[in-house]
């Protein structure tokens, strides 16, 4: 991962000979619908808020894609959100709290399984008790739907959704630039390209991380701290990874339900950066890893270009 590693140049942008190191996670999908796409997205954005990193948020959450009425169980516009955690058990309280506080409360919302998998996890199992005994269930095929009376009618929520333990968290790329505005625009374009890939999310704000971290800290009790090697203002003071022309670094973190989805997302993200980045001051793409000793999944940048 050193700046001295031989680089491959694509459209004027150096691609480091390195890899992103990612971890196995548990992931689930949830479909949120509403009377309008506006309100489906409001519920989804609220439910996936404060869901950037499992370290501090309990789960990594985001919107996978919008769904047309033909794609939802109730024929209304919807959004598919993904949630990732350390284990299926770790996702249980996250689903309970996020759906209970953010989707149940949102006008006109309903909630359905968004992942077809053999292993199931509770979706409406806990929120249904809000009905205080007035809730009723309707089983159709293999799905059980709970109807919870609320002030704008009924909140309908499927009892379970699928969960997979083959999910991957922590696919990443670090984009280095000499112009902060151009770097942000380029990274936004990469996030937009990744958003078109199914089964992945970029859980950080707008899909972008400006505070990449390293493992541990000088302070007791901190699991992670600033990645000083990639902080441009420390370039002369630490064993920096940055060249003299680097003004800023932005990172995209990718979680996916499968390793292939993460690889596909990284591929289109890299392409987006190399397509437009040079003209916007992007000079280099690298990736975060721990020497390959911690994560089960390695995504070599040059294999994806």
């Amino acid at each position: 991962m050193s700046q001295n590693a031989p680089s491959k140049i694509i459209n004027g942008i150096a691609i480091d000979d390195t890899f992103a190191e990612a971890f196995g996670m548990s992931g689930t999908g949830i479909i949120i619908t509403a009377d309008t796409m506006k309100w489906a997205k409001i519920a989804a954005v609220t439910a996936t808020g404060f869901g950037t990193s499992v370290i501090g948020c309990g789960a990594e959450c985001g919107i996978d894609r919008e769904l047309s009425p033909d794609e939802t169980p109730d024929g209304r516009p919807g959004v598919r959100v993904l949630m990732f955690g350390f284990s299926p058990d770790a996702l249980v309280p996250q689903i309970k709290n996020r759906i209970g506080q953010c989707v149940l409360t949102s006008p006109g919302s309903a909630c359905f399984a968004g992942l077809d998998a053999q292993m199931k996890i509770g979706l409406g199992k806990a929120p249904r008790f809000f009905g205080d005994g007035f809730q009723t269930a309707k089983k159709l095929g293999d799905s059980r739907y709970w109807r919870v009376p609320v002030m704008d009618g009924e909140f309908v929520i499927e009892e379970t959704t699928g969960v997979t333990t083959d999910a991957v968290g922590g696919g990443n790329m670090l984009i280095v630039g000499k112009d902060r505005t151009g770097l942000l625009e380029t990274t936004e374009a990469a996030v937009a390209a990744i958003a078109k890939i199914d089964d992945v999310i970029t859980p950080f704000p707008g899909g972008i991380v400006r505070s990449g971290s390293k493992v541990g800290a000088k302070y007791a009790g901190m699991f992670a701290s600033t990645n000083d090697a990639f902080c441009p203002t420390l370039r002369g003071a630490v064993n920096s990874e940055l060249g003299s022309d680097a003004l800023a670094v932005l990172e995209i973190v990718i979680d996916g339900l499968t390793s292939k989805a993460v690889a596909d997302a990284m591929r289109v993200g890299l392409k987006a950066v190399t397509d437009i980045g040079a003209g916007k001051g992007v000079t280099r793409i690298t990736a975060g890893n721990y020497g390959g000793k911690l994560g089960q999944h390695h995504y070599h940048l040059r294999d994806l270009i």
Binding site: P73, K138, G153, V156
Partner: peptide, 12 residues
């Protein structure tokens, strides 16, 4: 009422 469950049932 416009009950969502009726729509879900019809589609199913």
């Amino acid at each position: 009422h416009d009950l969502l469950i009726v729509r879900i049932l019809s589609r199913h």
